[in-house]
Design a protein around this nucleic acid. Structure first.
Lengths: 343, 343
DNA sequence: CTGAAAGCGCTTACAG
DNA sequence: CTGAAAGCGCTTACAG
């Protein structure tokens, strides 16, 4: 007998073994490597397992095999639909390969991020996917020590920790504004969140500024909204503030399609013509972008593909033990011009 | 020495104990119940842990304490923003209480659902939240055997398995269509997914039909779109098909705001007046609903609150060992009339 | 306030 | 093809 009370009448492999009249490790073998077991034995074990509704304790298995079956992803927010697509891509591929995805949502907060990382590392993931940048030295140290494969996504870091499946936020920022310049706009504004809570938006803004400066245009039209993750409402208030402070603006780049939507609807409400008085563009090519009136110009990001390919790299590395040759992948982006920026 | 090679140089509580010059279980105690340890010892252990960057193995802890620290949620899809809000509510509250949320996304597929449930039960969650209904007998048996608290959400089941924090989809369907009848509409259609893949939509439709029949109105205007989760595009094609087959329709209820958005934009594209020629309403009161032109009438669902309260019930039950008195909560819904249904 | 022993439910070599 | 032993990294009573 145990020394403590059982919490519930959980069926263990020992119970299955007893019922099937075999040893405990034959049960384990039947479940994990059925080929190494005689058909008759296999039959007995499978029947016993089914009759007892045996559900193996994965944590116990993880402990002895030193393989948790977990892959973790750390992301700023689940509310951002682009990140969510990445989670989908990860989840689809990982599940198909027998891994479970642990999701760590750190609310765009760097302090929470380190704490969450520690918590997640406590589950001993076999690999970790970063959707948020991991800048704090403490977080870096934890990752180093964990000594597991890391895939960075949603960025193109200059000093990658390990593998990368991403694109350059800076280049996306540069390219979109450059294309607006080509369309003839010359007072181009940017609507984004504060730099420290939205690093990706900040990098897009830097690319945007670089494009304007290269073209000899002014680059000071900048509206900062307070919240992250950015919501529709931030676009509503942001565009009002923009028109008040910089009435000469002829095109507005919004850090995400969500804020662009807010800006667009506020313009409609106020009777400001889009395009015409003001062109509007966003990032993410969210589902609704082509359906708005006017249809929204946006930058299509490889959200799902980043997740899928990150998972593939991880599976390849863990299962084959070797890092694939192309473990740094720049998936790029695509600017999709629609009505909202038509000159 | 171990008989097998260590996978990585993972720091264990034994290492910390050695460094601090105490026993292994004093380390455990320091981390779990610091009050039972002398300040001097605590100091030594904490220093050693920090220096070694010790991250406790939660799976090992779970195994011996028989407490996994996991709470699981099973949901049809992460792509549905209402469900996502529920996940947020769960996650916020559970994390604050030291639990980690395991997310099981079963793609609206009943077969996958049972398999996923088995997988998740393998992680020995201390409670489980169901966002999808669990109809299969096999799933029910697994849940029974697990003998853990269950919270059903997003519904108001007639025979709840355990706790419930939800609302009646049927009543929501009834109430919305009833209110449209009061506004004077009389050829009211419904646009939803197939019954077997979208049970919630189907229940809304049944409520809708009941309201029409009660009022003596026709209840045969029904367009089924193929995909679940329902996307904008389904609204686009759905409304076209509706106008072709039932040109007399004066109001359309869409199973979610996402399809309502598609229907709305398609009407704009075709020049069909909304409202006027066709009133449109949806479910979920998604972020964009008030921002569309015309603003979209929708049913506000207690998405976040269901998650939050489900988590609170779970925490109360696990920590206090007693089930709260009000463990069946009908959180209701709210119909928000906006321009899109203005007579 | 601290420690030695037993055990959580599995898996991994090893031996037969 | 199958089994006895050891161990994964913790925690839980129990004893001092």
């Amino acid at each position: 007998m145990n020394r403590r009370a059982k919490k519930s009448s959980s069926v263990t492999s020992r119970d299955v073994a007893a019922r099937a009249g075999v040893s405990l490790m034959t049960v384990s073998r039947t479940l994990r490597t059925p080929d190494l077991v005689s058909p008759a034995t296999r039959q007995k074990v499978e029947t016993a397992a089914r009759e007892l509704k045996y559900v193996p304790d994965l944590a116990a298995g993880a402990l002895s095999s030193k393989r948790s079956g977990h892959v973790a992803v750390l992301l700023p927010s689940l509310r951002h639909s682009g990140f969510l697509r990445t989670v989908d891509g990860l989840s689809d591929t990982l599940r198909a390969n027998g891994y479970h995805l642990l999701i760590g949502d750190c609310y765009y907060s760097p302090e929470e991020q380190t704490e969450l990382l520690r918590l997640i590392l406590g589950r001993r993931p076999e690999a970790i996917v970063l959707v948020s940048s991991m800048d704090s030295p403490e977080a870096r140290e934890l990752l180093d020590q964990a000594a597991i494969p890391i895939v960075e996504t949603w960025d193109w870091p200059s000093d990658p920790a390990d593998m990368v499946v991403g694109f350059s936020q800076y280049e996306a920022g540069y390219a979109l504004s450059e294309s607006l310049i080509e369309l003839g706009y010359c007072n181009i504004g940017f609507l984004g969140g504060p730099a420290h809570t939205d690093p990706y938006g900040e990098q897009r803004r830097k690319g945007h500024v670089a494009a304007l400066e290269k073209a000899g245009l002014r680059a000071d039209i900048h509206v900062t909204v307070s919240d992250t993750p950015m919501e529709i409402q931030d676009g509503v208030t942001g565009v009002s503030s923009l028109r008040r402070r910089f009435p000469e603006t002829d095109a507005l780049v919004c850090a995400t399609d969500m804020t662009a939507l807010g800006a667009l609807t506020e313009c409609q409400r106020r009777g400001w013509q889009v395009p015409g008085e003001l062109a509007i563009a966003g990032y993410g090519n969210f589902d609704f972008a082509p359906h708005l009136t006017p249809a929204l110009t946006s930058v299509k990001l490889p959200s799902y593909r980043m997740g899928k390919q990150a998972a593939e790299l991880i599976v390849a590395q863990i299962d084959n033990g070797t890092q694939p040759a192309d473990a740094s992948r720049n998936l790029g982006f695509e600017i999709i011009h629609r009505q909202s920026t038509q000159p």
